[in-house]
Structures are given as structure tokens and as C-alpha cells.
Simulated assay, not measured.
Amino acid sequence: MITVALTGSIGMGKSTTASLFAAEGIPVFDADAAVADMYAPGGEAVTPLSMAFPDIVADGCVNRDKLSAHLKRQPDDFARLEAIVHPLVAARRAAFLEQARADGAWCVLFDIPLLFETGMEAHVDVVVVVSAPADIQRTRVLARDGMHAEKLDMILSRQTPDAHKRDRADFVIDTSKGVDDARHQVRAILDALRKRRQNPGP
């Protein structure tokens, strides 16, 4: 089974691209969705985070606006947050991979926003980076509800620069030309991976 990691900076079209892989029958593990579920009432991250950061939990769940405000005031707490959340995500990812193997999947995709930042690229076979010109990226992100330039800059400061990601990728998907064009790129990548699987190198 080929393991593929999909990553890209905010606003590059990563979630849409992941859905294109899913539409081609590839099982997708969405790290952001896993975190959102763990932050919800009853989620496994709520109790440990309430102990570490009491001000960010309300009504039995992690309030992401309060979490963002807390990290803006105390950016050093990113490391404490990651030390709690990353192992929980890893456990979910392992369970997903086990199920995919049991189902006989030939390929799986991990949608991991902080792939290079967490060193996860060393644990997959193929890295796909989603990219777009910086002006398109900013326009997309600033159009989101609750987003502003200062918040975007803070997020980007925590992410590996786009150029560095592209340099370290096995494949790059340019999302600047729309969904149909991205779909063609996804299919071309999957065709290449099928051929690689059929004709493995030495």
C-alpha cells in the first residue's frame, strides 16, 4: 500500500484537493477534521487541554476562538498544545491506516497541514504539496469569515514557507486554475503511483 501525504499552506486549496483524491476512491485521513472532533464535547483532547489551558474550554469543548486568543497572548504555549494534540492525532491516524489495510486499499492519503513542521514526511512514501501564487492565497484566506491580515500572518509564521514545501515535494498540484484542472493533476498523480506500484524500482 502506498502512503501519500498531502500538505500545503493555508488558502492553497488543500481540503478541496483532498476531496478530489477521495472522489477517485482513495481513503483520506483529515488531520484537521480529527482535531475538530477531538475538541468537541466528549473528544479525547478536551480533558487534557482543560487541565493545561483552563481558559480555552467552555461547555465541555475546546473553544477555538479562545484558544487562538490564548496563543496570541502566549505563543510559547504552542509547544505545550502540540505535545498534547499530536499524539492523539497520531493514534487516530494509526487506526485509520489499520482499517485501510484491512479493507484492501492500494493507496491512502493523509491530509496533514503541518507535515514538514512535525517531521511526518519521513513516515510516508509520497509527498504531494498543494500550491498557488501568494496573491491568490491571501485573497482566498482574507475572504473567510473572521479572518484578517494579522491572524493570517500569525498562521503563516507557524508554517513552512510554500517555496520550501514545493522543493521537498514528490508532486506539486497548482490550484490556481480551478477545480477541473486540479482534478486532472490528481488523476495524473494517481496514474503515476499505479505504475510505480506495478513496476517498483530496485
Rank of each mutant, 00 (worst) to 15 (best):
G178Y: 01
T47M: 07
F53C: 11
R168K: 15
V130Y: 00
K151E: 09
G11F: 01
V130E: 00
K14T: 01
R140Q: 05
D162G: 07
D103K: 00
R197I: 08
A79I: 12
R92M: 06
D162N: 07
T175H: 05
F96I: 02
D170H: 14
A102Q: 10
D125K: 00
R92H: 14
A132S: 12
F96T: 03
D167R: 09
M154T: 09
A52Q: 15
I136V: 15
I136R: 10
P161V: 12
A134V: 12
G119D: 03
D167A: 15
L193F: 11
M147K: 10
L71R: 00
R73F: 03
R64Q: 07
A95Q: 09
G104T: 09
D37S: 12
T7W: 07
D125T: 04
D65T: 14
E117V: 10
I26C: 01
F96S: 05
V62K: 02
P200N: 08
I112W: 01
V127D: 08
V57F: 06
R187F: 06
D191E: 13
A83C: 04
A45Y: 12
D181V: 14
D125C: 03
A100M: 08
C61F: 07
R144C: 10
V108Q: 10
H123M: 08
L67I: 02
A134F: 05
P87D: 01
I2W: 03
V89P: 06
F29L: 04
S15F: 00
A192S: 05
L142K: 12
A102H: 13
A182R: 01
R144T: 11
Q137A: 07
A192T: 14
R138A: 15
Q74S: 11
G104D: 12
T47P: 03
A52T: 15
A169D: 06
V141W: 11
D181E: 14
S19E: 13
A33N: 01
A182K: 01
L6V: 10
A100N: 10
P75L: 09
D32L: 06
V46N: 06
F171Y: 15
G25T: 02
Q185S: 14
A163W: 11
I189D: 12
N63F: 09
D145R: 15
R168I: 06
L109T: 11
